[in-house]
Amino acid sequence: MIHEVDEALRRLLGGSGLTASGVEVVFDAPTNDWAARRSAPTVCVFLYDIREDNSRRGSSAGEVYDADGFVVARRAPARWFELTYLVTAWAGRPQDEHRLLSQVLACLVSTDTLGPDLLTGSLAELGLIVGLDAGGTGLDAPAASDVWSALGGELRPSLGVRVRAPLAGVRQVAAPPVTEGLTVRSVPRSGPDGTEPARRLRYTEVSDPGPDGFGGPRERQPAPARRRRRGDRQP
């Protein structure tokens, strides 16, 4: 799921005009060594915190249907996670970095959800809403200054981006629907010639299972007479 969120953010930022202007979108850690090797204008989207949203944990399983409407699998409920990114712009001059970061900010703040055209893999298959918040971080996420300190770099202008995405539950294949009836045929050990009549299980009112097995027609018994209760009016 994490790499699918990365790809959605790449498509979102690339569609805002960054790719057309020659800006590269990467997901590397912006360390000092990485910054020294950078040679082209770059937008760095660094994932630094992953936390589960326990308030959205479900308890019911979902069913997966095929094209004919039959249940082919059962999937455990999705579990939701908050992915927090640190977005920075890298260019030759601070003015160019600020201009680039402003373009990124305009793109992110105008997007509340990652649309279906941006989603791939399990995110596209689940069809659930993937939310996006720009300009802030989760209440429990580390501060940007702590992240820069851990990376060993100098504090730079950055955007906090939080994505709420579902992780697909475990999928268990369901047994195919029953299409044939179950019958038992017993023959004596001395002469197993297969001439003994078949015996239907459970449905004793049918003497012959027929070619349709359990799906064959059965004789409908009349409904039992309604017991008259005290106080009922005579017709």
Rank of each mutant, 00 (worst) to 15 (best):
R57K: 14
A67T: 13
G216M: 03
V25W: 03
A78C: 10
L182H: 11
V5S: 00
T113L: 09
A175V: 10
E63R: 14
E196M: 11
P197R: 05
R57T: 10
F81I: 07
V163W: 06
P116W: 03
A8I: 00
W90T: 08
A73Q: 10
T19D: 12
G92Q: 14
Q103N: 12
V23I: 10
G210P: 01
G136Y: 06
A91G: 13
D28R: 12
G58L: 11
G136W: 10
I129L: 15
L100T: 08
W34S: 11
W148H: 07
L101V: 08
P166V: 01
E125T: 14
G15V: 01
G22M: 07
G215M: 14
V170L: 12
L105H: 13
R230E: 13
H98S: 14
E82Y: 03
P116S: 07
L119H: 05
D96S: 11
V45Q: 02
D193E: 12
A165L: 03
A67Y: 06
L118T: 09
R218N: 08
E4S: 12
V43L: 05
S59E: 11
A144M: 07
G135H: 11
A225F: 10
R199H: 14
A78K: 05
C44V: 15
L114V: 03
G215L: 14
S102A: 15
R202A: 15
G194L: 05
A106I: 11
R230T: 14
A165Q: 00
G17V: 10
D232N: 08
A134L: 05
L151P: 01
W148V: 06
G136K: 12
L47Y: 01
P142F: 03
V170W: 05
F70Q: 14
R233N: 04
L132P: 00
R156Q: 15
F214C: 05
P166S: 01
V64I: 15
T179F: 06
G152M: 09
A174S: 14
D232V: 05
L119K: 01
R189H: 12
I2D: 00
G191I: 13
P41F: 01
V71D: 07
V206N: 09
A106G: 11
L83K: 06
Y48V: 07
D117P: 04
R233D: 13
G14R: 02
Y85P: 02
R93P: 04
L114D: 00
R228S: 05
L151H: 01
G131L: 06
S16C: 12
V72W: 06
R156D: 09
G121H: 04
E4I: 02
T113P: 04
V25N: 04
D66I: 07
D49L: 02
V26E: 03
P222D: 11
D33C: 09
T120P: 02
T84V: 09
